[in-house]
Lab assay of single mutants.
Amino acid sequence: SFNTVDEWLEAIKMGQYKESFANAGFTSFDVVSQMMMEDILRVGVTLAGHQKKILNSIQVMRAQMN
């Protein structure tokens, strides 16, 4: 498990989005775990492969939080 959203993004090789997530207010796992595709688009993730990777990881995160 990760301590910060930045660490999580690095771990899934999506570190290039750290600033975008932070600027959009997605700075805690409570918020990130609620993200939908529209949120991912809003933070500027436009590549389908990256969207899928982030969404898949969020689903895993949700499962671990319950």
Results as ranks from 00 to 15, higher is better:
1 S>K: 15
1 S>T: 15
2 F>A: 08
3 N>M: 11
3 N>D: 13
4 T>Q: 07
4 T>N: 11
4 T>G: 08
4 T>R: 05
5 V>D: 01
5 V>Y: 03
5 V>E: 00
5 V>A: 02
5 V>G: 00
5 V>W: 03
5 V>H: 01
5 V>R: 00
6 D>A: 12
7 E>M: 08
7 E>W: 04
7 E>Q: 10
7 E>I: 06
8 W>H: 00
9 L>D: 02
9 L>F: 03
9 L>S: 01
10 E>P: 01
10 E>R: 05
10 E>K: 06
10 E>F: 07
10 E>G: 07
11 A>E: 12
11 A>G: 14
11 A>W: 12
11 A>K: 09
11 A>Y: 14
12 I>E: 04
12 I>G: 03
12 I>V: 04
12 I>Q: 05
13 K>Q: 15
13 K>D: 14
13 K>C: 11
13 K>R: 10
13 K>A: 15
14 M>V: 04
14 M>F: 05
14 M>Y: 03
14 M>P: 01
14 M>I: 03
14 M>S: 02
15 G>T: 07
15 G>I: 05
15 G>L: 05
15 G>F: 05
16 Q>S: 07
16 Q>C: 08
16 Q>N: 06
17 Y>K: 01
17 Y>E: 00
17 Y>R: 01
17 Y>G: 01
17 Y>H: 05
18 K>G: 06
18 K>F: 04
19 E>L: 10
19 E>Q: 10
20 S>E: 09
20 S>C: 08
20 S>Q: 14
20 S>M: 15
20 S>Y: 07
20 S>R: 13
20 S>N: 13
20 S>A: 14
21 F>G: 00
21 F>P: 01
21 F>V: 02
21 F>L: 03
21 F>Y: 03
21 F>H: 01
21 F>W: 04
22 A>F: 13
22 A>V: 10
22 A>I: 09
23 N>S: 10
23 N>R: 13
23 N>A: 14
23 N>F: 09
23 N>D: 13
23 N>E: 13
24 A>C: 09
24 A>E: 10
25 G>N: 06
25 G>M: 04
25 G>H: 05
25 G>K: 05
26 F>E: 01
27 T>C: 07
29 F>L: 15
29 F>S: 03
29 F>H: 03
30 D>E: 14
30 D>I: 10
30 D>P: 09
30 D>M: 11
31 V>F: 08
31 V>A: 15
32 V>H: 02
32 V>L: 05
32 V>E: 01
32 V>Y: 01
33 S>I: 14
33 S>L: 15
33 S>T: 12
33 S>W: 07
34 Q>N: 13
34 Q>P: 04
34 Q>G: 10
34 Q>A: 12
35 M>E: 01
35 M>K: 01
35 M>H: 01
35 M>V: 03
36 M>T: 15
36 M>V: 15
36 M>Y: 09
37 M>P: 12
37 M>D: 06
37 M>L: 13
37 M>H: 12
37 M>T: 07
38 E>M: 08
38 E>P: 12
38 E>R: 09
38 E>H: 10
38 E>S: 11
38 E>N: 08
39 D>S: 03
39 D>P: 02
40 I>R: 00
40 I>F: 05
40 I>Y: 03
40 I>P: 00
41 L>Y: 10
41 L>R: 13
41 L>F: 08
41 L>T: 08
41 L>H: 08
41 L>I: 15
41 L>D: 05
42 R>P: 02
42 R>G: 10
42 R>L: 10
43 V>D: 00
43 V>I: 13
43 V>A: 14
43 V>L: 14
43 V>N: 02
44 G>S: 04
44 G>N: 04
44 G>I: 02
44 G>V: 01
44 G>L: 02
45 V>K: 01
45 V>Y: 01
45 V>N: 01
45 V>T: 02
46 T>W: 07
46 T>S: 10
46 T>K: 10
46 T>D: 07
46 T>A: 10
47 L>A: 12
47 L>D: 15
47 L>S: 13
48 A>H: 12
48 A>F: 08
48 A>T: 12
48 A>E: 14
48 A>L: 13
48 A>K: 14
48 A>G: 08
49 G>Q: 11
49 G>E: 15
49 G>M: 14
49 G>A: 15
49 G>R: 11
49 G>N: 13
49 G>C: 10
50 H>E: 06
51 Q>K: 05
51 Q>W: 04
51 Q>T: 06
51 Q>V: 09
51 Q>H: 04
51 Q>D: 02
51 Q>A: 13
52 K>Y: 10
52 K>G: 07
52 K>H: 12
52 K>L: 13
52 K>Q: 15
52 K>E: 15
53 K>L: 15
53 K>H: 15
53 K>C: 10
53 K>N: 11
53 K>D: 10
53 K>T: 15
54 I>D: 00
54 I>P: 00
54 I>G: 00
55 L>Q: 06
55 L>G: 03
56 N>M: 14
56 N>H: 13
57 S>F: 08
57 S>W: 10
58 I>D: 00
58 I>Q: 01
58 I>S: 02
58 I>T: 04
59 Q>P: 02
59 Q>V: 09
59 Q>W: 09
60 V>S: 12
60 V>M: 12
61 M>P: 01
61 M>K: 02
61 M>W: 07
62 R>W: 09
62 R>V: 12
62 R>D: 05
62 R>P: 04
63 A>V: 09
63 A>P: 06
63 A>K: 07
63 A>N: 15
64 Q>H: 12
64 Q>E: 14
64 Q>Y: 09
64 Q>A: 12
65 M>H: 07
65 M>P: 05
65 M>C: 08
65 M>V: 07
65 M>Y: 06
65 M>W: 06
66 N>A: 14
